[in-house]
Design a protein around this nucleic acid. Structure first.
Lengths: 206, 206
DNA sequence: TGTACATCAGTGAACGCGCGTTCACTGATGTAC
DNA sequence: TGTACATCAGTGAACGCGCGTTCACTGATGTAC
């Protein structure tokens, strides 16, 4: 009845790559990005410090794998909340709010994602072709109903993305606490900030 | 004629506090935030690794001193470029552009400033009373010409601040290179992004 | 079906490193008398 | 004006730490014949 064979891990792991990335994410959740050393990851995965080198060239490559998972998770989170929005008008705010919620709920993962990006001075390549950035652009395009040139669309997407990232980094700052209370909670505060971006005020009357 | 006495530093330094903060900023400029250890700062200042402990309780306290200088420098940079703006309408964009330029020209210092803030989960206290944040709020208030409630004003300031911070963190990302070229350079790109925030589009016709 | 052997994926000990911080110390300074 | 002494602001050696990475190794797996 009991599965005795699994009580002690066999010499070969089976899928150590996967296990290492999972271990890394567990460490991020528990102790934050500063605790994320290669040795800690190996320890958490129950494996010797040298083992990861059979799967990742160096620490950076493991971090990139973790970051990549983060972007994929963000993609689907945004996708889901965009699908939930009631109408086109709310879709823009909803996707912004969802973006910040993701960062708030996965702060350490979010940090690793941007640390990797900064190291390369670029967002992940796939973002421009598909993925989160593209979803933001599409949402804006829908809401603008053709009123934007390609350049306007690109610039507005960048502006919205930057606002989302900035808010994501500051959402938990103490200074905002009174305003959150006043508005009825953090999510209401979030919506309010995005609405004040006023990104598409010019379309309100057209 | 030559001042022989200064050729070898006297035993007592005179103003080691100051010298340490200066050394820290030099290290930041040369080698970035990752290189900013207490020992490196002492080395750069030409002093033993224990010397800083007579002036700062620990590494964190030195970092805070550096960050504080950064905020002060940002304050006066924003003040100066706000004074240069031609009219009220441009003032908002100008202050945003200046904010990002500061971050771009002092990337490591900017990083330390926000790292310290994140550790405390708050922007520096003086920001709400005076300083950079307050300047942004005042600029927005001027441009809105009384059309904003206190809450609207606060939310708009937060939105603008977040957009500025987000753009500051991403301004050098490679993905934006084509757009920068298209628009005639990085500064033009910056202005364009801030204009697309459309923060006050609703006031354009009123 | 059995066996030799190459390859794969682990082990654990060790390397050298730079870090933050502490310690007992000493040279320099300033103040009380 | 001189001197004893407390205090201040340095020194340099040492502590223990965890890190990324390498190394020679070995156990397990799979494949060719």
């Amino acid at each position: 009845m009991t599965i005795a064979a699994t009580e002690s891990r066999p010499y070969h792991h089976g899928d150590l790559s996967r296990a290492l990335v999972d271990a890394a994410r567990r460490i991020l959740e528990k102790d934050g990005p500063a605790a994320l050393s290669l040795r800690a990851v190996a320890r958490e995965a129950g494996v010797s410090p040298a083992a990861p080198y059979h799967h990742f060239k160096d620490k950076g490559e493991l971090l990139e794998a973790v970051a990549h998972e983060g972007w994929v998770a963000l993609d689907s989170f945004l996708m889901a909340s965009r699908a939930l929005a009631q109408n086109a008008r709310d879709r823009m705010t909803s996707i912004g709010v969802a973006y910040v919620q993701f960062a708030r709920d996965n702060p350490a993962l979010y940090r690793v994602m941007y640390d990797c990006s900064r190291d390369k001075d670029a967002l992940p390549d796939q973002m421009k072709e598909e993925g989160a950035y593209c979803q933001v652009r599409n949402t804006i395009a829908e809401q603008a109903e053709g009123g934007f040139s390609d350049i306007d669309l690109e610039l507005s997407t960048i502006a919205a993305w930057c606002a989302g990232h900035g808010l994501a980094e500051m959402i938990s700052f103490k200074q905002f606490a009174p305003l959150k209370d006043l508005l009825g909670g953090e999510d209401a505060f979030l919506r309010a900030v995005f609405e004040h971006l006023g990104m598409f005020a010019k379309f309100d009357k057209g």
